[in-house]
């Protein structure tokens, strides 16, 4: 007795295979949609903005006349802001990660800290702007300075850096730690001389990616009131300044057609900036990451 009717199976098989093939094509097209939108986005921005990229664009300050508009104030301002964000967010992020991975015992308080970091990662950036406006700009009276913006951005990317550093620290194998303890090293010696050095590539990669997010973020800067028209370069941490995304936002909002191209040129500069940072992160990951 045959349990499977061969003819019946063959008859249905064809349509099932066709369905499979059709859906494979549909799924592939859907994936292409994302790639295509990225390609169009890059093409549009480059073709629109490349004409405005010139030496003058990098050396001029903002201007009412599109042809004279330049990005130097924003570029230098973004670099200054980075100089605040990088140390602050790395110290806070790596410190928290070491505590959570190496010292924190499993109790309610530490569970609360963990849950809190996960929740903080989901808070919209514009709300961080409100925090910065109230605490740094007004309560601590830093004004709309580099320091106030840098602190706000540091807090914004803090959860990302903590999670990346935690993963990097967790990836250091137990054997290394045990060998260090076996040689008579104390806990802090083990952490500072064994765990951290082998986790640093991972931490740096995560840190640079988080930093590049902070550089492209606009909303908190708008909320804390970073000005757009700045005709001088900042000279200390309490100076007023403007940043790349802020400048682009201002150009994009203007009604004149020509400013759209200036905005596109600004976006090219911003994207190149991010591209360089991401490449550094990839190089660090590939070159220094050890596999255990």
């Amino acid at each position: 007795m045959r349990h499977i009717d061969h003819k019946n199976v063959v008859k249905r098989m064809g349509s099932r295979m066709i369905l499979n093939k059709t859906f494979k094509a549909i799924f592939f097209m859907a994936t292409l949609f994302a790639l295509l939108s990225l390609a169009i986005l890059f093409y549009r921005i480059v073709s629109q903005g490349i004409g405005f990229i010139s030496i003058d664009f990098f050396t001029n300050f903002g201007s009412r006349i599109p042809e004279n508009a330049g990005i130097v104030a924003a570029l230098v301002g973004s670099l200054w802001m980075m100089a605040v964000i990088a140390p602050v967010s790395l110290i806070l992020g790596v410190g928290s990660a070491i505590y959570l991975e190496e010292y924190a015992k499993k109790n309610k308080l530490n569970d609360f800290i963990r849950m809190n970091i996960a929740n903080l990662a989901g808070v919209p950036s514009v709300v961080f702007g409100l925090l910065g406006l109230t605490i740094f700009v007004r309560a601590l009276a830093l004004g709309n300075s580099i320091l106030a913006a840098g602190f706000t951005m540091s807090l914004l990317i803090l959860p990302v850096i903590i999670v990346a550093s935690q993963e990097a620290i967790r990836a250091v194998p137990k054997e290394l730690r045990e060998a260090s303890y076996g040689m008579g090293a104390t806990k802090w010696q083990t952490i500072s001389k064994v765990v951290l050095p082998s986790a640093i590539p991972g931490i740096l990669t995560g840190g640079i990616l988080a930093l590049s997010r902070a550089i492209g973020e606009t909303a908190p800067l708008v909320v804390i009131g970073i000005p757009v028209i700045i005709q001088f370069l900042p000279d200390n941490l309490l100076s007023q300044f403007t940043a790349l995304p802020m400048q682009i936002f201002d150009w994009a909002k203007r009604p004149q057609e020509a400013f759209q191209s200036v905005a596109a040129a600004g976006i090219i500069v911003l994207m190149m900036f991010l591209l360089i940072m991401n490449s550094i992160a990839v190089v660090i990951r590939n070159k220094f990451q050890k596999r255990y």
């Binding site: 986005l41 629109q48 995304p245 596109a264 976006i267 911003l270």
Partner: peptide
């Protein structure tokens, strides 16, 4: 990696794309 790039594009760039394209 291309999807990662798409996720890393700053939102201001998306905004400009929405408005002008």
């Amino acid at each position: 990696p291309i999807l990662e790039v798409l996720a890393g594009v700053p939102t201001i760039v998306y905004g400009f794309f929405a408005l002008t394209f």
